[in-house]
């Protein structure tokens, strides 16, 4: 069980880093869905089936759809570019 937790945690943290690091917004939204999915697996391992179901349906499903729809609306729906997203501080 501990190995399952560690592997899931690694996937989750790698996806979280990708959310911060990837320049493409479409990829970042996909990565945040991966974070939610890994999180729901962790909830299931922690014996919280209700929370796991909610995270999978709401976090991985609806939030991803909402974010993707917004990307399309604000014109960031492209695999590579970010128009005014100069992330450099």
């Amino acid at each position: 069980m501990i190995w399952l937790v560690l592997v899931t945690m690694a996937v989750m943290l790698a996806a979280a880093l990708a959310v911060i690091g990837l320049r493409s917004y479409l990829a970042a939204v996909a990565a945040i869905s991966v974070v939610s999915l890994a999180l729901s697996v962790l909830f299931a391992i922690l014996r919280a089936p209700d929370v796991a179901l909610a995270e999978a349906a709401v976090g991985a499903g609806l939030s991803g759809v909402l974010l993707a729809l917004t990307l399309r609306r604000v014109g960031l729906w492209t695999p590579a570019a970010d128009d005014d997203g100069e992330d450099r501080p």
Binding site: D50, A52, L53, A54, A57, V58, G61, L62, V65
Partner: peptide, 24 residues
């Protein structure tokens, strides 16, 4: 999921999200 919320994992919030997805 909504109707069996008091018996099994799930309930109004999870089932509601799935219903919303069904209509969307």
């Amino acid at each position: 999921i909504v109707i069996h919320g008091h018996l099994t994992p799930g309930g109004g919030f999870q089932g509601g999200a799935i219903l919303a997805a069904a209509f969307f």
